[in-house]
Simulated scan of single mutants.
Amino acid sequence: MPTPHTDPVMTAPVKVSICLPTYQRPDLIGQSLDSCLAQTHTNIEVLIGDDSTDDRTRSLIEARYAADPRVRYVKNTPSLGQARNVESLFARATGDRILLIHDDDFLVGNAVERMLSAWPAHPDVQVAFGDQYVTDSRGTVLPAASEHLNRAYHRTRDVAGLQKQPGRTGLVQMFPNNGWMADADLVKRIGYREQNGVACDYVFGTEICLAAKGVYYLNEYVSYNRQTEVSITTSTRASTSASTLVAYNFLRALELPPQLEPARRLALRRMVPIVVSIYARNHAPLESLKLALSHLSAYNYGFSRRLYFHLLIMAKSLLTARTSAL
């Protein structure tokens, strides 16, 4: 068995920049950062962008990681916000590949090594990703939820490997919000844009897959997705700034070649019921009804109980509006 000094994983020339944005989670970022530093592929740098309003995360990093040269920490003053924080990390990256992981999530021990394996096997690959475990708030894996998540987002064994339509991967949300890897120059060219709000993950994922020559799906678990109630997406999901509503408007306006129109319809099928509910709950019942009736396929053409639940919400919203006008 080769020694650590001659192991090809240990001496691999490819440098990976792991970007780790954080905000007010000193109790969680330690596990995320530890998972990055424990990777079997050791030619890495870990870039942390701290948007926190206090110094708890800074104190943690200084106490536990100050001696590790791979950790490069920056406290954003003033805070940059989600998209600009991620974009600043991309700008600071010096590696050949970039990997994004959020502060409440963490990586499987050989995630970097396994995703990197796609490049020498397929010359056109510019983006790679794998499956995500779902965990509870304490980081305990939930097997049934993990299987459901990956199946729901089209990550199944029968489609493993190089994707025939790279753009479809982003459109239908097969590409995950984090735990992915991509060529650094491509990541920096696409970037995160502040105007996309909390949907910046989806917009970025769609645009990078549309731009990539090759996208590779590894049918292996590479990251852990922690379920918490403090995420931006969770706290805004019923409002007019909800990520799904922003993503829906982006998707509708997106210019696509004819061969990707089926992927757009599949993506809209997932989004429309959520957008219908958002409209109805935010005093726009007529817009909600119009959208539902124009996308009946999203409700199995009337055979989904979800449609009738949404009709009830619309009726309640309309009644409330009329009562307020009296």
Rank of each mutant, 00 (worst) to 15 (best):
residue 113 E to M: 10
residue 88 S to M: 04
residue 120 P to Y: 10
residue 122 H to F: 14
residue 105 D to W: 06
residue 110 N to E: 10
residue 123 P to A: 02
residue 105 D to Y: 06
residue 101 I to Y: 03
residue 141 V to S: 08
residue 70 R to C: 02
residue 60 L to S: 03
residue 110 N to H: 10
residue 123 P to E: 11
residue 91 A to T: 12
residue 99 L to G: 00
residue 101 I to T: 11
residue 124 D to A: 06
residue 84 R to D: 14
residue 92 R to H: 05
residue 60 L to Y: 12
residue 56 R to N: 05
residue 73 Y to R: 00
residue 144 A to V: 08
residue 75 K to E: 03
residue 150 N to V: 01
residue 121 A to M: 13
residue 92 R to E: 02
residue 96 D to Y: 00
residue 125 V to Q: 00
residue 104 D to Y: 01
residue 86 V to P: 10
residue 145 A to R: 15
residue 112 V to S: 14
residue 100 L to I: 05
residue 117 S to V: 05
residue 138 R to Y: 11
residue 145 A to Y: 12
residue 132 Q to I: 11
residue 66 A to T: 04
residue 61 I to T: 06
residue 83 A to Q: 04
residue 58 R to Y: 10
residue 126 Q to S: 12
residue 133 Y to G: 03
residue 100 L to Q: 10
residue 143 P to D: 03
residue 110 N to A: 10
residue 145 A to T: 02
residue 131 D to Q: 08
residue 135 T to G: 02
residue 125 V to C: 01
residue 96 D to V: 06
residue 139 G to N: 04
residue 96 D to E: 07
residue 101 I to L: 11
residue 67 A to D: 15
residue 93 A to F: 02
residue 87 E to D: 15
residue 125 V to R: 00
residue 83 A to E: 04
residue 92 R to G: 01
residue 81 G to N: 05
residue 106 F to R: 02
residue 84 R to L: 13
residue 54 D to L: 02
residue 55 D to S: 07
